[in-house]
Design a protein around this nucleic acid. Structure first.
Lengths: 216, 216, 216, 216
DNA sequence: CGGTAATCGAGACGGTACGTCATGTCTTACA
DNA sequence: TGTAAGACATGACGTACCGTCTCGATTACCG
């Protein structure tokens, strides 16, 4: 499986550098039209509505062209979604405190996730990731790991400046931050507000830092 | 939509009591065969493999019979899964401490969730719940709310005996317990161990109880 | 392969007689609509235009229904063509002379074959018969053998009344009658007129009957 | 349409003589590789297996090169087949009798036609000829007319030496010779033996020559 | 004990989408 | 200019399910 074609990194198959590239070059116009059409369908009516036929028609492109670059509609959906999220990469570099950095990391995520029906899409991708392990690898490396890596850096900096103990279980802490957010996003039993983000961050920090309860 | 037919509660359509029920009665054998066939397919190959045709053939039943009682394969899958989980409902009444009660609540859940590939199934149900709000209602009332209700009772008892402050944000606390568990179940980026449950409970309690850090 | 469904003989799979016939019965309306649509396409634009999609659309029928009864478009075309030719089965019983009987046999064939672009269709069926032996069996048993059988009976009667020698090579004679007709029908190098039929019959009879040349 | 490029006569498009021919000259190697690959596929698996992609791959040639010289796969197949048959052009100059000359003409044809599965190929070409009149012209001028011309010359010589009447219907006679042979070749209802050739010739001659029956 | 009524099995039906394949055109770089 | 490579639009292929439907057969109650 290869679903890295929508990514900016490119890094093609073998000859990376400046191979002459014989044959007709890939149509960039078609690539973008496909991703756009897929994204529209995805957000409007969910992954199940992303049929190859529908994408082909909407993008004014042949089905064969889609299959040439994306093996399944799931990988296509993943690329289409990534295309949308990649543009809104929020990072907000260090505020000086762990709490501030975490809020800077999570608030944009919540704002983005809540802005459109992404819950449905992510749910579908998660389901597919469970069915197809190879797809799971790609999904996590694109959507999960980058966020966790940012969080790890934030925690490392906090340990560096002695804000939290050096033996803090960082992986658990990250799950305690993202877990509740994903929980509300996917299950929808309660709203995913910014206030909720603050509560989650404060409770988690309260559980990590000795002798300090959650503040408001 | 009606998906309550596999439930023990029964409580049929309108006339609750003991109507004479003319005509041939529903075949209990067929009902069980269908649920069993659906559950097998569900766990073995995921929701996408639960086709009405496949269930009908495997259960030795006609497709019309399935559609007679379940409007979609999703509702059928939900009933089939519920059938499996309902039997393993351990709650372990009060140990006297909040921590003990919470561990008693969450540990069996983790053990059950990890015993078979339920992550895939739950992911699929969650996705469907996002697409079909009516289905979402049923899903939550069967799988999410009962657990949360138990947790609420546990927290209420802890407040009663002054173990935690009376103004504890219980809903947030519950999300901080179940969120990380669902997170690992669905995303699979890290194992869903009993040790992780303990870490989650301890961190959450540390964030709630003033002047007390997470213990081991 | 089974392509006998358009035939009048029916004689279904196993239980010929009065089986209870479970399940929804086959739609006669659909069957006829399919055959008619196929025949139209076949004669208008040749076998290559008989796509299952086109037939399905034109007949207002689902593709699956076609595939349920005809394994390939060739068998469908064969049935469709047979449906047209079966209705025009003129035989004209014995005129008393071999020459008269043969003309009575061949003239209607030529008239039918020349009435519409059947040459193209028969050519396609012949080609398919060469590729798929099983199909060849069916094709010959429906289109070739019945005609030859009629010719054999005519020759046998002529031998009976001592019009031709008893050791006449009947199979060769039949090939000498139908061969030239098919030749012109398929190759189209010269017109397939009734005069040509007469010439062919007379020449063949002249070659069979000793001491008698072709008359007019 | 142009399908004369595989022919030995060459005689290219316009400038026949010795034009300077700018640009890269046509690759003779490619031309032969294409014809060879097409012929292999044609005889091994029929015309339907002669896909432009398959020929291109097998010949180690680009599809564009094939389309550059042959407009359709049918014209390519025709050239490929002609390439094979041209080498085995029947010779047998006059034996002195009509019967001997005709046998000398037809026997090599039967031997060649029966040596490999040519029936399938010729059936396909005939079918295409019916669909595309222009193709039909070319097909007949290459495969049918040359043979008929040879036969006409043989009959003319026989008339010259008073072996048969001057008013013999030669075109009918030729159809009565080739018709039965093509009939068995294409329909395959009976073997195409040399004995059959003799029977056909003798019966035809018997029908032409007054007062003379078929000999053995 | 026969009539009414809802169930069940079987399976045909009109659809939609699947993923693959072949056609014929086009666009590049190289020869 | 010709050629190899290969992307492209088009459209048919044969399969799998969907959800609906029409049968005949079965099994209760109810009058």
């Amino acid at each position: 499986m290869q679903a890295g074609d929508g990514a900016p990194a490119a890094a093609d198959d073998e000859a990376t550098a400046d191979a002459p590239r014989r044959g007709r070059p890939r149509s960039e116009k078609a690539r973008l039209a496909i991703l756009e059409a897929a994204a529209e369908l995805l957000l409007a009516r969910g992954l199940s509505a992303v049929s190859m036929d529908a994408v082909a028609e909407r993008a004014g492109v042949s089905k064969a062209t889609i299959y040439r670059w994306w093996p399944t509609k799931e990988t296509l959906a993943l690329d289409a979604l990534y295309n949308e999220w990649a543009g809104v990469q929020p990072r907000t570099r260090s505020t000086g405190t762990l709490r501030g950095d975490l809020l800077g990391l999570l608030r944009p995520w919540v704002r983005l996730a809540g802005s459109r029906p992404y819950g449905r899409v992510i749910g579908a991708l998660v389901t597919e990731a469970q069915t197809d392990p190879e797809f799971g690898e790609i999904y996590r490396s694109r959507f999960v790991e980058p966020r966790r890596e940012q969080a790890r850096a934030i925690f490392a900096a906090a340990i560096e400046r002695d804000e939290i103990p050096a033996d803090t279980k960082v992986e658990v802490a990250i799950d305690m931050l993202y877990g509740p957010l994903y929980h509300r996003l996917l299950h929808g039993h309660a709203p995913l507000t910014e206030r909720f983000v603050r509560d989650v961050v404060d409770t988690t920090l309260g559980g990590i830092m000795p002798g300090q309860a959650a503040g408001t």
